[in-house]
Design a binder for these strands. Structure first.
Lengths: 255, 255
DNA sequence: TATTAAAGTGAACACCGTTAGCTAACTAAT
DNA sequence: ATTAGTTAGCTAACGGTGTTCACTTTAATA
Protein backbone atom coordinates (compact mmCIF):
# COMPACT_ATOMS: atom_id res chain seq x y z
CA UNK A 1 0.00 0.00 0.00
CA UNK A 2 2.43 2.51 1.17
CA UNK A 3 4.97 0.97 -1.12
CA UNK A 4 7.73 3.22 -2.29
CA UNK A 5 6.94 3.16 -6.00
CA UNK A 6 7.49 6.88 -6.46
CA UNK A 7 11.04 6.64 -5.16
CA UNK A 8 10.31 9.34 -2.62
CA UNK A 9 10.76 8.97 1.11
CA UNK A 10 8.54 6.31 2.62
CA UNK A 11 5.93 7.10 5.17
CA UNK A 12 8.20 5.83 7.88
CA UNK A 13 11.04 7.98 6.74
CA UNK A 14 8.79 10.99 6.71
CA UNK A 15 7.64 10.24 10.21
CA UNK A 16 11.17 9.78 11.36
CA UNK A 17 12.30 13.04 9.82
CA UNK A 18 9.40 14.80 11.45
CA UNK A 19 10.27 13.37 14.85
CA UNK A 20 13.89 14.36 14.45
CA UNK A 21 12.83 17.87 13.58
CA UNK A 22 10.58 17.93 16.62
CA UNK A 23 13.41 16.79 18.85
CA UNK A 24 15.75 19.41 17.49
CA UNK A 25 13.12 22.10 17.86
CA UNK A 26 12.64 21.19 21.48
CA UNK A 27 16.38 21.16 22.04
CA UNK A 28 16.68 24.60 20.53
CA UNK A 29 13.85 25.92 22.62
CA UNK A 30 15.65 24.74 25.72
CA UNK A 31 18.88 26.21 24.43
CA UNK A 32 17.11 29.52 24.12
CA UNK A 33 15.65 29.36 27.59
CA UNK A 34 18.41 27.84 29.66
CA UNK A 35 21.58 28.11 27.65
CA UNK A 36 23.84 25.42 26.22
CA UNK A 37 24.39 23.55 29.48
CA UNK A 38 20.69 23.64 30.29
CA UNK A 39 19.66 21.29 27.54
CA UNK A 40 18.34 18.09 29.05
CA UNK A 41 17.68 14.93 27.16
CA UNK A 42 14.92 13.92 29.54
CA UNK A 43 13.29 17.32 29.24
CA UNK A 44 13.34 16.99 25.48
CA UNK A 45 11.75 13.57 25.75
CA UNK A 46 9.08 14.96 28.07
CA UNK A 47 8.52 17.78 25.61
CA UNK A 48 8.20 15.54 22.60
CA UNK A 49 5.98 13.19 24.58
CA UNK A 50 8.17 10.16 24.65
CA UNK A 51 10.49 8.28 26.97
CA UNK A 52 14.08 9.41 27.31
CA UNK A 53 15.32 6.06 26.09
CA UNK A 54 13.35 6.46 22.87
CA UNK A 55 15.56 9.34 21.80
CA UNK A 56 18.42 6.92 21.42
CA UNK A 57 16.65 5.55 18.35
CA UNK A 58 17.38 8.92 16.76
CA UNK A 59 20.68 10.05 18.22
CA UNK A 60 23.66 8.19 19.59
CA UNK A 61 23.93 10.48 22.57
CA UNK A 62 23.07 13.92 23.82
CA UNK A 63 26.39 15.18 22.52
CA UNK A 64 25.62 13.80 19.10
CA UNK A 65 22.28 15.56 19.15
CA UNK A 66 23.92 18.82 20.15
CA UNK A 67 26.43 18.42 17.39
CA UNK A 68 23.75 17.94 14.78
CA UNK A 69 21.86 20.90 16.16
CA UNK A 70 25.05 22.88 15.94
CA UNK A 71 25.46 21.99 12.29
CA UNK A 72 21.88 22.98 11.62
CA UNK A 73 22.52 26.32 13.25
CA UNK A 74 25.52 26.86 11.04
CA UNK A 75 23.37 26.05 8.03
CA UNK A 76 20.87 28.61 9.20
CA UNK A 77 23.57 31.21 9.67
CA UNK A 78 24.99 30.45 6.25
CA UNK A 79 21.59 30.62 4.59
CA UNK A 80 20.79 33.89 6.31
CA UNK A 81 24.13 35.34 5.34
CA UNK A 82 23.79 34.23 1.76
CA UNK A 83 20.36 35.78 1.56
CA UNK A 84 21.65 39.05 2.92
CA UNK A 85 24.46 39.03 0.39
CA UNK A 86 22.10 38.31 -2.46
CA UNK A 87 20.20 41.47 -1.66
CA UNK A 88 23.01 43.19 -3.53
CA UNK A 89 23.71 42.39 -7.18
CA UNK A 90 26.44 39.86 -7.98
CA UNK A 91 28.85 42.50 -9.19
CA UNK A 92 28.65 44.60 -6.02
CA UNK A 93 31.32 42.61 -4.28
CA UNK A 94 32.07 45.26 -1.72
CA UNK A 95 28.45 45.59 -0.74
CA UNK A 96 28.12 41.84 -0.57
CA UNK A 97 31.08 41.58 1.77
CA UNK A 98 29.66 44.26 3.98
CA UNK A 99 26.39 42.36 3.95
CA UNK A 100 28.28 39.26 5.06
CA UNK A 101 29.69 41.01 8.10
CA UNK A 102 26.39 42.62 8.90
CA UNK A 103 24.44 39.39 8.62
CA UNK A 104 26.98 37.54 10.70
CA UNK A 105 26.69 40.06 13.49
CA UNK A 106 22.93 40.26 13.24
CA UNK A 107 22.51 36.53 13.47
CA UNK A 108 24.99 36.05 16.29
CA UNK A 109 23.45 38.80 18.39
CA UNK A 110 19.85 37.82 17.88
CA UNK A 111 20.74 34.19 18.48
CA UNK A 112 23.26 34.59 21.27
CA UNK A 113 22.75 31.26 22.93
CA UNK A 114 22.89 29.43 19.66
CA UNK A 115 26.08 31.26 18.81
CA UNK A 116 27.44 30.44 22.21
CA UNK A 117 26.83 26.77 21.56
CA UNK A 118 28.46 26.99 18.16
CA UNK A 119 31.73 28.53 19.20
CA UNK A 120 32.05 26.68 22.49
CA UNK A 121 31.44 23.37 20.80
CA UNK A 122 34.53 22.52 18.76
CA UNK A 123 36.54 21.80 21.86
CA UNK A 124 33.96 21.28 24.54
CA UNK A 125 33.68 17.86 26.08
CA UNK A 126 35.18 15.05 24.15
CA UNK A 127 33.00 16.14 21.29
CA UNK A 128 35.95 17.36 19.32
CA UNK A 129 37.37 13.89 19.21
CA UNK A 130 33.99 12.55 18.23
CA UNK A 131 33.71 15.19 15.55
CA UNK A 132 37.14 14.45 14.24
CA UNK A 133 36.45 10.76 14.05
CA UNK A 134 33.18 11.36 12.27
CA UNK A 135 34.98 13.65 9.89
CA UNK A 136 37.72 11.20 9.13
CA UNK A 137 35.17 8.49 8.61
CA UNK A 138 33.53 10.65 5.98
CA UNK A 139 36.89 11.33 4.39
CA UNK A 140 36.87 15.00 5.31
CA UNK A 141 39.95 16.71 6.64
CA UNK A 142 38.03 18.53 9.39
CA UNK A 143 35.28 17.85 11.83
CA UNK A 144 31.88 18.84 10.44
CA UNK A 145 31.55 21.92 12.61
CA UNK A 146 34.89 23.34 11.59
CA UNK A 147 33.91 22.55 8.03
CA UNK A 148 30.70 24.53 8.41
CA UNK A 149 32.58 27.41 9.93
CA UNK A 150 34.87 27.44 6.95
CA UNK A 151 31.97 27.25 4.56
CA UNK A 152 30.67 30.36 6.24
CA UNK A 153 33.99 32.17 5.95
CA UNK A 154 34.24 31.12 2.35
CA UNK A 155 31.13 33.10 1.51
CA UNK A 156 33.15 36.20 2.23
CA UNK A 157 36.47 34.90 0.97
CA UNK A 158 35.04 33.91 -2.38
CA UNK A 159 33.53 37.32 -2.77
CA UNK A 160 36.90 38.86 -2.10
CA UNK A 161 38.49 36.70 -4.75
CA UNK A 162 35.90 37.76 -7.30
CA UNK A 163 36.40 41.36 -6.32
CA UNK A 164 40.10 41.02 -6.91
CA UNK A 165 39.59 39.39 -10.27
CA UNK A 166 37.45 42.24 -11.52
CA UNK A 167 39.49 45.10 -10.15
CA UNK A 168 42.73 43.59 -11.37
CA UNK A 169 41.43 42.86 -14.86
CA UNK A 170 40.07 46.35 -15.39
CA UNK A 171 42.95 48.56 -14.48
CA UNK A 172 45.82 47.53 -12.33
CA UNK A 173 44.06 46.60 -9.13
CA UNK A 174 44.19 48.40 -5.85
CA UNK A 175 47.39 48.08 -3.86
CA UNK A 176 46.83 47.54 -0.15
CA UNK A 177 48.22 50.15 2.15
CA UNK A 178 50.91 48.14 3.76
CA UNK A 179 52.08 44.58 4.24
CA UNK A 180 54.69 43.72 6.84
CA UNK A 181 57.55 41.54 5.78
CA UNK A 182 56.58 37.92 6.18
CA UNK A 183 58.76 34.86 6.28
CA UNK A 184 58.41 32.30 3.49
CA UNK A 185 56.96 29.89 6.03
CA UNK A 186 54.11 32.15 7.11
CA UNK A 187 53.56 33.20 3.52
CA UNK A 188 53.15 29.61 2.46
CA UNK A 189 50.83 28.83 5.33
CA UNK A 190 48.65 31.83 4.64
CA UNK A 191 48.33 30.77 1.03
CA UNK A 192 47.62 27.18 1.96
CA UNK A 193 45.11 27.86 4.66
CA UNK A 194 43.30 30.49 2.68
CA UNK A 195 43.10 28.39 -0.40
CA UNK A 196 40.21 26.97 1.59
CA UNK A 197 38.66 30.32 2.42
CA UNK A 198 39.51 32.39 -0.57
CA UNK A 199 38.65 29.67 -2.99
CA UNK A 200 39.74 31.87 -5.79
CA UNK A 201 42.76 32.26 -7.91
CA UNK A 202 45.96 34.14 -7.62
CA UNK A 203 45.01 36.87 -5.23
CA UNK A 204 48.15 38.56 -3.97
CA UNK A 205 49.56 37.84 -0.56
CA UNK A 206 48.74 41.30 0.72
CA UNK A 207 45.07 40.65 0.09
CA UNK A 208 45.14 37.32 1.82
CA UNK A 209 46.86 38.86 4.78
CA UNK A 210 44.35 41.66 4.96
CA UNK A 211 41.53 39.18 4.61
CA UNK A 212 42.75 37.08 7.51
CA UNK A 213 43.32 40.21 9.58
CA UNK A 214 39.80 41.33 8.83
CA UNK A 215 38.39 37.92 9.59
CA UNK A 216 40.04 38.04 12.99
CA UNK A 217 38.69 41.51 13.63
CA UNK A 218 35.14 40.63 12.69
CA UNK A 219 35.33 37.50 14.79
CA UNK A 220 36.52 39.55 17.73
CA UNK A 221 33.73 42.05 17.27
CA UNK A 222 30.99 39.48 17.00
CA UNK A 223 32.20 37.34 19.88
CA UNK A 224 32.67 40.33 22.14
CA UNK A 225 29.25 41.67 21.35
CA UNK A 226 27.53 38.33 21.69
CA UNK A 227 29.28 37.67 24.99
CA UNK A 228 28.70 41.17 26.30
CA UNK A 229 32.34 42.20 26.32
CA UNK A 230 32.24 44.91 23.70
CA UNK A 231 33.43 48.22 25.13
CA UNK A 232 30.86 50.06 23.04
CA UNK A 233 27.30 49.14 23.89
CA UNK A 234 25.00 51.91 22.79
CA UNK A 235 26.20 53.00 19.35
CA UNK A 236 27.21 49.55 18.25
CA UNK A 237 25.97 49.91 14.69
CA UNK A 238 28.06 52.97 14.07
CA UNK A 239 31.05 51.37 15.73
CA UNK A 240 30.77 48.39 13.40
CA UNK A 241 30.51 50.70 10.42
CA UNK A 242 33.63 52.55 11.47
CA UNK A 243 35.45 49.25 11.89
CA UNK A 244 34.37 48.16 8.43
CA UNK A 245 35.65 51.44 7.08
CA UNK A 246 39.01 50.89 8.70
CA UNK A 247 39.24 47.38 7.29
CA UNK A 248 38.39 48.59 3.83
CA UNK A 249 41.18 51.06 4.28
CA UNK A 250 43.49 48.09 4.72
CA UNK A 251 42.53 47.01 1.22
CA UNK A 252 43.32 50.44 -0.08
CA UNK A 253 39.67 51.30 -0.55
CA UNK A 254 38.24 54.57 0.68
CA UNK A 255 34.53 54.23 1.22
CA UNK B 1 46.10 29.13 74.45
CA UNK B 2 45.37 29.58 70.83
CA UNK B 3 43.99 32.99 71.57
CA UNK B 4 44.37 35.57 68.89
CA UNK B 5 46.68 37.94 70.74
CA UNK B 6 48.92 38.50 67.74
CA UNK B 7 46.06 39.80 65.63
CA UNK B 8 46.94 37.36 62.88
CA UNK B 9 44.58 34.80 61.44
CA UNK B 10 43.45 32.27 63.98
CA UNK B 11 44.25 28.62 63.71
CA UNK B 12 40.75 27.97 62.44
CA UNK B 13 41.00 30.63 59.81
CA UNK B 14 44.27 29.21 58.62
CA UNK B 15 42.80 25.75 58.37
CA UNK B 16 39.81 27.10 56.56
CA UNK B 17 41.92 28.99 54.07
CA UNK B 18 43.97 25.90 53.46
CA UNK B 19 40.89 23.79 52.81
CA UNK B 20 39.50 26.40 50.44
CA UNK B 21 42.76 26.41 48.54
CA UNK B 22 42.66 22.63 48.36
CA UNK B 23 39.12 22.70 47.02
CA UNK B 24 39.99 25.24 44.38
CA UNK B 25 43.07 23.29 43.38
CA UNK B 26 41.00 20.17 42.90
CA UNK B 27 38.42 22.11 40.91
CA UNK B 28 41.12 23.49 38.66
CA UNK B 29 42.62 20.07 38.16
CA UNK B 30 39.25 18.81 37.02
CA UNK B 31 38.83 21.84 34.81
CA UNK B 32 42.11 20.95 33.20
CA UNK B 33 41.17 17.35 32.66
CA UNK B 34 37.51 17.50 31.72
CA UNK B 35 36.77 21.06 30.77
CA UNK B 36 34.44 23.60 32.37
CA UNK B 37 31.34 21.44 32.30
CA UNK B 38 33.24 18.47 33.67
CA UNK B 39 33.78 19.94 37.09
CA UNK B 40 31.83 17.93 39.61
CA UNK B 41 31.23 18.98 43.17
CA UNK B 42 31.11 15.39 44.34
CA UNK B 43 34.35 14.60 42.57
CA UNK B 44 36.00 17.54 44.27
CA UNK B 45 34.71 16.30 47.62
CA UNK B 46 36.05 12.84 46.87
CA UNK B 47 39.36 14.37 45.89
CA UNK B 48 39.67 16.51 48.99
CA UNK B 49 38.58 13.56 51.11
CA UNK B 50 35.33 14.89 52.41
CA UNK B 51 31.60 14.56 51.85
CA UNK B 52 29.92 16.56 49.12
CA UNK B 53 27.70 18.26 51.64
CA UNK B 54 30.73 19.50 53.57
CA UNK B 55 31.73 21.73 50.67
CA UNK B 56 28.69 23.86 51.34
CA UNK B 57 30.44 25.08 54.47
CA UNK B 58 32.87 26.79 52.11
CA UNK B 59 30.83 27.75 49.07
CA UNK B 60 27.18 28.57 48.57
CA UNK B 61 26.96 26.44 45.47
CA UNK B 62 28.99 24.95 42.68
CA UNK B 63 28.40 28.06 40.62
CA UNK B 64 29.72 30.21 43.42
CA UNK B 65 32.81 28.05 43.62
CA UNK B 66 33.34 28.33 39.88
CA UNK B 67 32.93 32.06 40.07
CA UNK B 68 35.56 32.38 42.77
CA UNK B 69 37.85 30.12 40.80
CA UNK B 70 37.25 32.31 37.80
CA UNK B 71 38.25 35.40 39.74
CA UNK B 72 41.39 33.67 40.94
CA UNK B 73 42.26 32.80 37.38
CA UNK B 74 41.86 36.42 36.37
CA UNK B 75 44.15 37.39 39.20
CA UNK B 76 46.68 34.91 37.94
CA UNK B 77 46.41 36.25 34.41
CA UNK B 78 46.76 39.80 35.65
CA UNK B 79 49.75 38.95 37.82
CA UNK B 80 51.44 37.12 34.97
CA UNK B 81 50.76 39.96 32.58
CA UNK B 82 52.04 42.53 35.03
CA UNK B 83 55.19 40.52 35.56
CA UNK B 84 55.78 40.29 31.83
CA UNK B 85 55.30 44.02 31.47
CA UNK B 86 57.70 44.75 34.29
CA UNK B 87 60.41 42.93 32.42
CA UNK B 88 60.68 46.16 30.44
CA UNK B 89 61.57 49.44 32.15
CA UNK B 90 58.70 51.76 33.12
CA UNK B 91 59.50 54.24 30.34
CA UNK B 92 59.37 51.62 27.58
CA UNK B 93 55.64 51.95 27.15
CA UNK B 94 55.57 50.41 23.72
CA UNK B 95 57.51 47.38 24.84
CA UNK B 96 55.28 47.05 27.86
CA UNK B 97 52.16 47.09 25.74
CA UNK B 98 53.62 44.45 23.47
CA UNK B 99 54.44 42.44 26.55
CA UNK B 100 50.81 42.77 27.63
CA UNK B 101 49.55 41.30 24.39
CA UNK B 102 52.16 38.58 24.43
CA UNK B 103 51.49 37.59 28.01
CA UNK B 104 47.76 37.56 27.41
CA UNK B 105 48.14 35.22 24.50
CA UNK B 106 50.66 33.05 26.26
CA UNK B 107 48.48 32.61 29.29
CA UNK B 108 45.28 31.98 27.35
CA UNK B 109 46.90 29.38 25.14
CA UNK B 110 48.73 27.50 27.85
CA UNK B 111 45.62 27.60 30.01
CA UNK B 112 42.99 27.03 27.39
CA UNK B 113 40.38 25.44 29.58
CA UNK B 114 40.79 28.07 32.25
CA UNK B 115 40.41 30.72 29.61
CA UNK B 116 37.39 28.95 28.26
CA UNK B 117 35.80 29.07 31.68
CA UNK B 118 36.62 32.73 32.06
CA UNK B 119 35.08 33.98 28.86
CA UNK B 120 32.10 31.64 28.88
CA UNK B 121 31.25 32.57 32.43
CA UNK B 122 29.85 36.08 32.37
CA UNK B 123 26.68 34.92 30.74
CA UNK B 124 26.58 31.25 31.37
CA UNK B 125 23.87 29.89 33.61
CA UNK B 126 22.17 32.33 35.86
CA UNK B 127 25.58 33.18 37.18
CA UNK B 128 25.51 36.56 35.59
CA UNK B 129 22.55 37.53 37.69
CA UNK B 130 24.29 36.17 40.74
CA UNK B 131 27.41 38.10 39.83
CA UNK B 132 25.48 41.26 39.28
CA UNK B 133 23.75 40.94 42.60
CA UNK B 134 27.02 40.30 44.35
CA UNK B 135 28.47 43.31 42.60
CA UNK B 136 25.64 45.60 43.49
CA UNK B 137 25.81 44.42 47.06
CA UNK B 138 29.43 45.48 47.15
CA UNK B 139 28.55 48.80 45.59
CA UNK B 140 30.40 48.04 42.37
CA UNK B 141 28.93 48.93 39.01
CA UNK B 142 29.87 45.58 37.46
CA UNK B 143 29.91 41.94 38.38
CA UNK B 144 33.29 40.88 39.80
CA UNK B 145 34.34 38.98 36.70
CA UNK B 146 33.70 41.87 34.35
CA UNK B 147 35.55 44.02 36.84
CA UNK B 148 38.55 41.71 36.70
CA UNK B 149 38.44 41.69 32.93
CA UNK B 150 38.53 45.46 32.96
CA UNK B 151 41.36 45.50 35.44
CA UNK B 152 43.25 43.37 32.97
CA UNK B 153 42.50 45.67 30.06
CA UNK B 154 43.44 48.65 32.16
CA UNK B 155 46.98 47.34 32.44
CA UNK B 156 47.34 48.05 28.75
CA UNK B 157 45.13 51.11 28.64
CA UNK B 158 47.01 52.81 31.42
CA UNK B 159 50.26 52.18 29.62
CA UNK B 160 48.84 53.75 26.51
CA UNK B 161 47.81 56.83 28.48
CA UNK B 162 51.30 57.18 29.91
CA UNK B 163 52.75 56.74 26.47
CA UNK B 164 50.59 59.51 25.15
CA UNK B 165 51.53 61.79 27.99
CA UNK B 166 55.20 61.43 27.28
CA UNK B 167 55.09 61.65 23.52
CA UNK B 168 52.78 64.65 23.59
CA UNK B 169 54.82 66.51 26.17
CA UNK B 170 58.07 66.07 24.31
CA UNK B 171 57.27 67.17 20.82
CA UNK B 172 53.79 67.32 19.43
CA UNK B 173 52.74 63.74 19.75
CA UNK B 174 52.19 61.26 17.01
CA UNK B 175 49.11 61.70 14.90
CA UNK B 176 47.26 58.47 14.16
CA UNK B 177 46.92 57.51 10.58
CA UNK B 178 43.23 57.92 10.18
CA UNK B 179 40.06 58.29 12.19
CA UNK B 180 36.67 57.91 10.55
CA UNK B 181 34.07 60.51 11.26
CA UNK B 182 32.22 59.60 14.41
CA UNK B 183 28.92 60.93 15.69
CA UNK B 184 28.91 62.88 18.93
CA UNK B 185 27.03 60.00 20.53
CA UNK B 186 29.64 57.37 19.76
CA UNK B 187 32.40 59.82 20.59
CA UNK B 188 30.93 60.40 24.01
CA UNK B 189 30.44 56.72 24.64
CA UNK B 190 33.98 55.87 23.64
CA UNK B 191 35.29 58.49 26.03
CA UNK B 192 33.00 57.32 28.82
CA UNK B 193 33.65 53.64 28.47
CA UNK B 194 37.35 54.06 28.07
CA UNK B 195 37.68 56.35 31.01
CA UNK B 196 37.58 52.99 32.78
CA UNK B 197 40.20 51.36 30.60
CA UNK B 198 42.45 54.21 29.71
CA UNK B 199 42.45 55.58 33.20
CA UNK B 200 44.56 58.45 32.02
CA UNK B 201 43.98 61.98 31.11
CA UNK B 202 43.09 63.76 27.94
CA UNK B 203 44.18 61.26 25.35
CA UNK B 204 42.71 62.26 21.99
CA UNK B 205 39.74 60.48 20.53
CA UNK B 206 41.77 58.97 17.74
CA UNK B 207 43.90 57.16 20.28
CA UNK B 208 40.93 55.88 22.19
CA UNK B 209 39.39 54.65 18.98
CA UNK B 210 42.59 52.92 17.95
CA UNK B 211 42.91 51.43 21.40
CA UNK B 212 39.44 49.94 21.31
CA UNK B 213 40.04 48.67 17.79
CA UNK B 214 43.26 47.06 18.92
CA UNK B 215 41.60 45.60 21.99
CA UNK B 216 39.00 43.98 19.76
CA UNK B 217 41.68 42.62 17.44
CA UNK B 218 43.74 41.14 20.24
CA UNK B 219 40.63 39.62 21.78
CA UNK B 220 39.76 38.07 18.45
CA UNK B 221 43.25 36.68 18.04
CA UNK B 222 43.42 35.17 21.49
CA UNK B 223 39.94 33.70 21.44
CA UNK B 224 40.43 32.23 18.00
CA UNK B 225 43.73 30.69 18.93
CA UNK B 226 42.51 29.36 22.26
CA UNK B 227 39.42 27.90 20.63
CA UNK B 228 41.31 26.50 17.68
CA UNK B 229 39.75 28.76 15.06
CA UNK B 230 42.80 30.73 14.04
CA UNK B 231 43.45 30.34 10.31
CA UNK B 232 47.19 30.35 10.94
CA UNK B 233 48.35 27.47 13.07
CA UNK B 234 52.02 26.88 12.47
CA UNK B 235 53.65 30.31 12.36
CA UNK B 236 51.42 31.81 14.98
CA UNK B 237 54.15 33.81 16.69
CA UNK B 238 55.08 35.60 13.53
CA UNK B 239 51.45 36.18 12.67
CA UNK B 240 50.92 37.83 16.04
CA UNK B 241 53.97 39.97 15.53
CA UNK B 242 52.71 41.10 12.16
CA UNK B 243 49.34 41.93 13.68
CA UNK B 244 51.01 43.95 16.41
CA UNK B 245 52.95 45.80 13.74
CA UNK B 246 49.76 46.64 11.91
CA UNK B 247 48.12 47.89 15.07
CA UNK B 248 51.09 50.07 15.89
CA UNK B 249 50.73 51.45 12.43
CA UNK B 250 47.24 52.56 13.45
CA UNK B 251 48.86 54.69 16.11
CA UNK B 252 51.19 56.18 13.57
CA UNK B 253 54.14 54.26 14.84
CA UNK B 254 56.45 52.42 12.49
CA UNK B 255 58.41 49.88 14.28
C1' DT C 1 -1.21 -13.30 6.66
C1' DA C 2 3.27 -14.31 8.65
C1' DT C 3 7.74 -12.22 9.09
C1' DT C 4 10.75 -8.79 10.31
C1' DA C 5 12.59 -4.50 11.43
C1' DA C 6 11.72 -0.24 13.76
C1' DA C 7 9.82 2.56 17.54
C1' DG C 8 8.71 2.84 22.13
C1' DT C 9 8.40 1.34 27.11
C1' DG C 10 9.87 0.61 31.92
C1' DA C 11 13.13 -0.43 35.09
C1' DA C 12 17.55 -0.08 36.46
C1' DC C 13 22.45 1.95 37.08
C1' DA C 14 25.55 5.32 38.30
C1' DC C 15 26.08 9.64 38.59
C1' DC C 16 24.87 14.75 39.76
C1' DG C 17 23.70 19.33 42.97
C1' DT C 18 21.42 20.45 47.00
C1' DT C 19 19.07 20.32 51.60
C1' DA C 20 18.00 18.88 56.40
C1' DG C 21 19.14 17.14 60.74
C1' DC C 22 22.46 15.30 63.66
C1' DT C 23 27.18 14.67 66.01
C1' DA C 24 31.74 15.70 67.22
C1' DA C 25 35.26 19.10 67.82
C1' DC C 26 36.97 23.29 68.69
C1' DT C 27 36.67 28.45 70.60
C1' DA C 28 35.51 31.70 73.89
C1' DA C 29 33.69 33.40 78.01
C1' DT C 30 32.27 32.64 82.57
C1' DA D 1 37.34 24.06 84.44
C1' DT D 2 32.93 24.17 83.02
C1' DT D 3 29.67 25.82 80.06
C1' DA D 4 27.75 27.87 75.99
C1' DG D 5 28.17 28.65 71.24
C1' DT D 6 30.09 28.11 66.84
C1' DT D 7 32.04 25.41 63.16
C1' DA D 8 33.08 21.35 60.31
C1' DG D 9 31.79 17.22 59.22
C1' DC D 10 28.71 13.30 58.69
C1' DT D 11 24.56 10.44 56.91
C1' DA D 12 20.47 10.18 54.45
C1' DA D 13 17.49 11.66 51.38
C1' DC D 14 15.15 14.21 47.21
C1' DG D 15 14.83 15.09 42.60
C1' DG D 16 17.37 15.42 38.65
C1' DT D 17 20.65 13.77 34.90
C1' DG D 18 22.62 10.48 30.71
C1' DT D 19 22.70 5.84 29.38
C1' DT D 20 21.76 0.78 28.88
C1' DC D 21 19.10 -3.46 28.53
C1' DA D 22 15.38 -6.49 27.97
C1' DC D 23 10.86 -6.44 26.53
C1' DT D 24 6.60 -5.10 23.93
C1' DT D 25 3.99 -2.84 20.53
C1' DT D 26 3.56 -1.07 15.94
C1' DA D 27 4.00 -0.86 11.16
C1' DA D 28 5.92 -2.16 6.59
C1' DT D 29 7.13 -6.01 3.70
C1' DA D 30 7.29 -10.53 1.32
Amino acid sequence: MTSNTAGGPSRRERMRAETIAEIKASARSQLLQHGPSGISLRAIARDVGVTAAALYRYFDSLDALLMELCCDLYDELIAETRKAMDASPPEAHLERMKAWIWAFREWAVTNRREFELMISFPEDHNAMAMCARAGEAAGLPFDPITAKSMEHAQLCGGELAKFYEETSSQGGGIPPVQLPELSPGLTAELRDRCALFVVGETVPLAWIFSFVSGWVRVFGLVVMEAFGNLPVQEHVDEFYKSQILMMMHDFGIEG
